[in-house]
Structures are given as structure tokens and as C-alpha cells.
Amino acid sequence: MPEAAFHMAAPALPMAADGPALLSARGLCFDAGGKRLIDGVDIDIRPGRRTVVMGANGAGKSLLLRLLHGLIRPTAGEVLWQGRPLDREGRLAQAMVFQRPVLLRRSVLANLRFALSVRGLPGPERRAREAEAMERSRLGDLAGRPARVLSGGEQQRLAVVRALACAPGLLFLDEPTASLDPGSTHAIEQLVGDAHESGVAIVLVTHDTGQARRLGDDLVFLHGGRVVETGRAADVLGAPRSEAARAWLEGRLDLGSPSASRA
């Protein structure tokens, strides 16, 4: 039984059992344009675990992350942070990195400073965190450069260290290496690995099965807005039980109907 488990209404899916969850979703649904885009998702994310979310484009991965992070209100269901409804305080204990890094029209250092100053950190602590983040990101030489002229990899590295500088308990990463070369991907994975070693829980959306193997403790597979399979990442990737996950891993183009895909 994985330490972090994801479950939904379907009894076939493994249920969380070990320890209190950091973040939970219960019966999470989201509708838009008359369509149900997220359908009854139940998830428990436990402290310090790395969770990979996979699925085809349009499966609802990014939407699920936004719902879990409280950026979007669910149509039904609820998100709990440490057992209580997710509020601003809970969201501030999390951080999110988007697929396309959202950087302010400022220097590298000013981007970091902004994220820390809006949290009201006192000057000495803020400066210490800035210095640590600059060192960790290896962007120190570029501190005064406008952030938006950096390369794609550097921009994403800045986005990740900016998120980590806020000392989150949980970091959401929405396809952070989707358009990066192997070197830049490695740098991002190192940052994520370091964060995990320091105790940060990770929820990572990726299409890259290699990355899922490298970074995932647990895996949740979404199809048509539903969780169709969960388990340890190695198990799901090695021997998927759901038809959709199997089709995905075999590289088939048609993953079938969501309702027929639950493992």
C-alpha cells in the first residue's frame, strides 16, 4: 500500500490508510461549458511524498492541480488542507509552478524579492532566502538581468526556486519541463529532488514516463476528468491495470472511454 494514495468512488482503487494527509480532495468535480471536466476525484497527498499525475491532453491534469491549489473553485466536493477546508493560509503553505513560467517584468532578483516581500518576510530573512535561492538556482550571475530575457530553462529554474523560496509544504508542478532540453530538464529535476529531500511534498504533472519513474513515488492516472488508476509509480508504469493507462503507456492513440477504463 503506497504511503500516498489516491482514491475515488470506485472501490477498486487503492485507498489511503497511512497517517494524516497533507492535502485531500473529496468528491471533487468541476463543470464548464455544460461539461464535467473533473469528475468525482478523491485524493490524499501525504507529507514528503512525490506524486505524479499523468494522462492525455485534456484529461484534466492541469485543472486538477488548480483545483487542489485553490486557484479555481470546484463545482462540487472540497479540498482539505491538513484536515480543514483549504483557505488562504493553506494556499500560502503551498506553491505552484506553471508550464509556462509567469515571471514579472523585472530582474531575476526582483522576481524573487517580490514573492518573498508579499509574504511580509522581515528584511534579513528575506535577503537570506534570496541569497539561498540564487545559489540553489545557479542564477547568481544573472541576478540583475531582466527575467524575461533568460532562456526557457533559466526562466523555469527561476520559477521553481521562487516557489521554493516561499518554503512550501507542498509544491505543484504543472509540466515544468514540457519544452526544455535534457540539460535544463535535469536542472529542474535536481531542484525538485532537493526540495523533496528537504521534506517538501511534490505533485507533478508530466507526460514523460521517464520523468515519472525518476521523480514519482506514487502515480495517479487521469482520463476524461476521472482518476482511473493509482498506485506506486513503478507499479503503475510497470504493470498498468486500467485500459487507459495501458493504452497510454503502449503509445496507442485512442485511450478508450473513461467509464470503461477504471482499474
Binding site: 486557484l71 500560502l92 503551498q94 506553491a95 509567469v102 514579472l104 523585472r106 517580490f114
Partner: peptide, 25 residues
Amino acid sequence: REYAEQFDSLGVGPFDRVAALLWDA
């Protein structure tokens, strides 16, 4: 439109939001 989700994620308050937008624009 570009910053909204990042501001929400960072927990930027209304005053800081307006100030940051005016500065960045």
C-alpha cells in the same frame, strides 16, 4: 490576465496586486 494565477498562488493582496501591475506595466 497573464499574472492573475501567479498572484493568487503567491497570495498577493489587493494593494500589492495594484502596485505590482502599475509597476510592471
